[in-house]
């Protein structure tokens, strides 16, 4: 949209509003970004340095926040004293596995749902979407019982399957929107040109590929950031990063430096991925209701 700004004229009121808006924006940015900054900086602080606070009301004392000698020991201890290497791998496998399964089967289902009409389609659709929207704890109660009887609790396959409960409906729902946007005429032209139905389906895949790729990433993001499923279904053999980070909180001795470092390790990759697929993020986070 080249000219989306409606013309506006300067008045004293509008100037005052502009200043207020700028102020608000600045404050909000500080509020949003400060926690990241604190997390990042604290992950390089030694334990005692991290605990340093100025006296109450001593605003000039804020500088103590920056008085420290950077250390990487929290990061190294994550991998030496803890087995964060394994947890990263677990997170990757669980999130990646469920993302790949969800997107492969999801795109097949989304394509056919987009192209065929049958009685009860709306109901089927509602079932799919409500599966995605169901409260995680509520889903987990029966899932836990079932998985326990199948010996899936504490295993990566169990966790992958658990993540699929929200990723697969999500993929179907979003990808259907993608396929809806590909004109049927392109497949029809393919079929008249001499392709089979499956070849026609394959021929439009390149058109939706960027979207599908972005949604693989989004599915990974959702699964990577999950805590509840990982804490219950994955407990034992399939510990993921958020759970491992949480376990650093122990009643007597909270290792804040390590927790902050683990937070950085958990968050940084997702932040980067989020930036890569920024274009699709809004669509994804709003279940396709809002397209940017």
């Amino acid at each position: 949209m080249a000219s989306r700004d409606v013309v506006s004229y300067d008045t004293p009121l509008s100037r005052a509003l502009k200043v207020l808006a700028g102020l608000f924006l600045a404050l909000y940015l500080v509020w949003t970004l400060l926690p990241f900054f604190v997390m990042f900086v604290s992950s390089f602080k030694d334990l005692l340095e991290a605990f340093k606070l100025p006296a109450v009301g001593d605003w000039a004392g804020i500088t103590v926040f920056f008085e420290f000698t950077p250390t990487f020991k929290h990061y190294t201890s994550l991998f030496t004293e803890n087995s964060f290497g394994t947890y990263i791998l677990n997170s990757l496998i669980a999130a990646g596995g469920s993302a790949v399964i969800s997107v492969i089967f999801g795109s097949l289902a989304a394509y056919s749902l987009s192209r065929v009409d049958f009685r009860g389609k709306q109901d089927l659709f509602f079932w799919i979407i409500s599966t995605r929207m169901a409260p995680v704890v509520a889903v987990m109660v029966p899932l836990y019982a079932i998985f326990r009887s199948l010996d899936l609790v504490g295993t990566l396959p169990g966790l992958i399957l658990a993540y699929t409960t929200f990723n697969l409906p999500f993929a179907i729902w979003i990808l259907k929107g993608f396929f809806d946007n590909v004109p049927f005429a392109i497949e029809e032209a393919q079929m008249v040109d001499g392709s089979t139905r499956f070849q026609a389906f394959r021929s439009i895949l390149p058109l939706v590929a960027p979207g599908i790729g972005a949604f693989v990433v989004l599915c990974i993001l959702f699964a990577w950031n999950d805590f509840l499923f990982a804490a219950i279904i994955g407990s034992g053999g399939a510990k993921t990063l958020p759970v491992a980070t949480r376990e650093l909180v122990q009643p007597q001795n909270i290792q804040w430096g390590s927790i902050m470092a683990a937070g950085v390790v958990t968050t940084a990759p997702m932040m980067l991925l989020g930036l890569v697929i920024r274009k699709y993020l809004v669509t994804g986070l709003t279940m396709g209701a809002v397209k940017e």
Binding site: L29, T32, L33, P35, F36, V38, M39, S42, A50, F51, K52, L53, F65, L221, W224, N225, D226, F227, L241, P242, V243, T245, R246, V249, W256, I259, M260, A262, G263, T266, T267, M270, M271, L273, G274, L275, R278, L281, L285
Partner: peptide, 28 residues
């Protein structure tokens, strides 16, 4: 882009981070 950041963080990690910030003895 800046505004998107918090949404990329695992809610559990966000909870831990704020636990740190809220801490009664050393939370900023």
């Amino acid at each position: 882009t800046a505004l998107l950041m918090p949404m990329m963080m695992a809610p559990a990690v966000a909870g831990l981070l704020w636990l740190f910030l809220y801490n009664g003895t050393f939370g900023w």
